[in-house]
């Protein structure tokens, strides 16, 4: 398979356009153009993502030029379920071996060398860094007990303050107010954290009592309050004025979620032109443009759409997920 990739690299360099699937050793291997240069999180104008092309490099952190997003990708040897980038720093949430579902959260430098490692319970789900990289947050799925509710799951959201190394391995203990009232419950689940540039304000999803809410939290006072219902996996815009989120529009069915953008000043929501169901914490490429992963037909691709509800979705990077902008805010 390495031979195939090398071969295709040559073809790309020769100017050939390549996307095809090879049936090898009993499973599909997707061959994509490869650029042999190393992934560097400080290189401007590149989209960093998780390579989803089936084959030996699936799961590797990769990057492409935003000028040619379908073009050759740089591949690293770092494998992550979810990857985030801010200010030349990366956060990799990866599966870890163990009898129980386990993960590891790795903070990495611009060349993807490990700086910090945290053992985490559960299956990787979301990862985010604050704009200057000082705060990291990740979410895992932890699977429920078999006594009463077989197969049910809950989530676990953690925050790491890289300035002093303090880790909140489960933010469920934050003092929460729901619609102004102090709320404590055993069924609390948080997921999908996004940070503001002040390294203090954050947004996340909380579920309790069968409802989901968008919460705004204060990292310093360790308090949080709900802002509205039915808004999951928020992603704060670079200018800090809006969050993109997924809104549940069907209880079941093929398209449970529709991605929206919420104006935090007016609390007005705008549905995006993307009508397919997005189950992702989307990335802002700039204040007007979103990128997100969409699975379908046995593959996952990164798409992009305008943040104001206009236009139409466009394929950005095939066979890719977990988009993040290199050399983004702060760099």
């Amino acid at each position: 398979m390495k031979i195939l990739i090398a071969l295709v690299t040559t073809l790309v360099l020769a100017g050939a356009a390549v996307f095809y699937t090879v049936h090898a050793a009993g499973r599909d291997v997707v061959v994509v153009p490869v650029d042999p240069a190393a992934v560097d999180l400080t290189t401007p104008g590149r989209l960093v993502f998780r390579n989803e092309a089936a084959g030996p490099d699936q799961g590797a952190v990769a990057s492409v030029s935003l000028d040619d997003p379908a073009g050759p990708r740089r591949l690293s040897s770092l494998r992550c379920g979810r990857f985030a980038v801010s200010a030349g720093t990366g956060l990799c949430l990866a599966d870890a071996p163990g009898p129980l579902p386990s993960a590891v959260a790795l903070v990495v430098d611009a060349r993807l060398a490990e700086i910090n490692r945290t053992a985490v319970a559960g299956v990787p789900n979301r990862a985010r860094l604050s704009p200057d990289g000082a705060l990291a947050a990740w979410t895992t799925f932890v699977t429920g007990d078999s006594y009463s509710t077989p197969g049910s799951f809950s989530t676990r959201a953690a925050m790491l303050d890289r300035r002093d190394g303090q880790l909140a391995s489960n933010i469920e203990g934050i003092v929460l107010r729901v619609a102004g009232e102090r709320h404590s419950a055993e069924d609390l689940n948080y997921w999908g954290v996004t940070f503001a540039a002040d390294n203090r304000t954050f947004y996340a999803t909380v579920s309790t009592g069968g409802r989901t809410y968008l919460v705004r939290g204060d990292f310093d006072t360790w308090q949080a309050e709900t802002l509205r219902e039915n808004a999951e996996c928020p992603s704060l815009s670079p200018d800090g004025t809006r969050v993109a989120f997924k809104k549940r529009v069907q209880q079941d069915g093929a398209r449970p979620w529709r991605e929206h953008v919420l104006d935090l000043a007016t609390m007005k929501e705008t549905p995006l032109a993307e009508t397919r169901s997005i189950d992702d914490q989307v990335a802002w490429l700039d204040d007007r443009t979103l990128a997100y992963a969409l699975p379908g037909d046995g593959r996952t691709d990164i798409w992009t759409v305008r943040a104001d509800g206009s236009g139409s979705p466009r394929l950005l990077v095939p066979h890719a997920s977990s988009p993040a902008l290199s050399a983004s805010a702060g760099a």
């Binding site: 932890v142 699977t143 007990d145 078999s146 006594y147 509710t149 077989p150 049910s152």
Partner: peptide, 11 residues
Amino acid sequence: SRRFIRWAVVL
């Protein structure tokens, strides 16, 4: 005490 007392993977 949570409903989810121990871990099980029932995927």
